[in-house]
């Protein structure tokens, strides 16, 4: 039982980053703007959090600096998300192309800046202040559940709170209804007075900032600094989580948790005796194979927002 609790607890670490990234992707796609650029936003978040936290440390903020890093990621990623927003909403650029541009630009410019700021170094200095696991009093003592959920990094709690908030906003408030309507049928939404493009701007920019927290989480809980391989494909896995989760926040986090568990399995499988005879690569493959099998079993007919990828033109029917 303890082993399983540890496993699930470990998987939360991996899942948290994916949850942020998937939520980010979901916000944008629900408004009808495809977001291939999640990977780029994560890179941006990882970079800006590492740099702002580094300077916050230098300025003597101590234990507060990882939080300042998160805020830095959230704010500065607007630079990239606004590029995606302006290109795809105002100038009608193909949204896949514009997202790809974000991926290329984010990777190129952050690595460039790292080498520029930290003269020739390929990665940012290791941070001394990072997040540590927080035990929530009393709740941690609940058998099993306490061990799994209530002894985690602060970012995990933020992510789970965000899922609940986002689900509430999307499905229980007028703003959420407007956001969804813009993604389903922008012209109909416009007819009843919703400002389509404004809604989409908000969604895309928020999307970038939320996804950036995913990158920041990886820096602030696992790696402690930013290097060229800090973000390696997690953004695309988050994208897959959005699609597998059928563009629904709860679905997306379940998918993210699934990936997290599989990721944790591959890191912790050594503790099982029977596993020693199985080649490691099988475990590495597992999460992705599992996803494919789940998708094939589910028939995969997931329904994307209807206007996803369509440029909104006033008066078009």
């Amino acid at each position: 039982m303890d082993i399983i609790a540890n496993l699930l607890n470990g998987s939360l670490v991996f899942s948290t980053a994916l949850i942020f990234a998937a939520l980010g992707g979901l916000i944008s796609e629900r408004s009808g703007v495809i977001n291939i650029g999640i990977e780029g936003f994560m890179v941006s978040g990882a970079f800006f959090s590492a740099v702002t936290a580094y300077y916050a440390e230098a300025a003597g903020f101590g234990a507060m600096s990882p939080w300042i890093g998160l805020i830095g990621a959230f704010i500065f990623t607007v630079i990239f998300s606004s590029i995606h927003a302006v290109a795809s909403i105002k100038y009608g650029a193909n949204q896949v192309v514009s997202g790809t541009v974000i991926n290329i630009l984010a990777a190129g410019s952050t690595f460039f800046l790292v080498k520029m700021i930290f003269v020739g170094s390929a990665e940012t200095p290791l941070l001394t202040n990072v997040f540590h696991k927080v035990r929530i009093p009393y709740l941690t003592d609940i058998p099993f559940v306490g061990k799994v959920f209530f002894n985690a990094y602060p970012t995990t709690y933020v992510a789970i709170a965000l899922v609940i908030v986002l689900h509430f906003i999307l499905f229980k408030t007028p703003s959420g209804l407007r956001l969804r309507s813009v993604g389903e049928h922008p012209n109909a939404a416009a007819t009843v007075g919703v400002k389509v493009n404004r809604m989409r701007y908000i969604a895309v920019i928020l999307s970038g900032s939320v996804a950036s927290l995913g990158g920041a989480t990886i820096v602030m809980t696992m790696n402690g600094n930013f290097a060229h391989n800090t973000i390696a494909g997690q953004g695309f896995i988050a994208l897959a989580a959005v699609i597998i989760g059928k563009w629904n926040p709860i679905g997306a986090i379940l998918a993210a948790l699934l990936f997290g568990v599989a990721q944790a399995v591959k890191d912790q499988f050594q503790i099982f005796e029977f596993a020693a005879t199985i080649p490691t690569e099988i475990f590495y493959m597992l999460p992705y194979l599992l996803t494919l099998v789940v998708l094939i079993g589910a028939g995969g007919k997931s329904r994307a927002p209807k206007a996803l990828g369509e440029h909104y033109e006033v008066g078009k029917r």
């Binding site: 994208l239 992705y288 996803t291 494919l292």
Partner: peptide, 10 residues
């Protein structure tokens, strides 16, 4: 999009 990402890792 999903299958090709998964198949990359596989």
């Amino acid at each position: 999009v999903v299958t090709s990402i998964m198949l990359n890792f596989i």
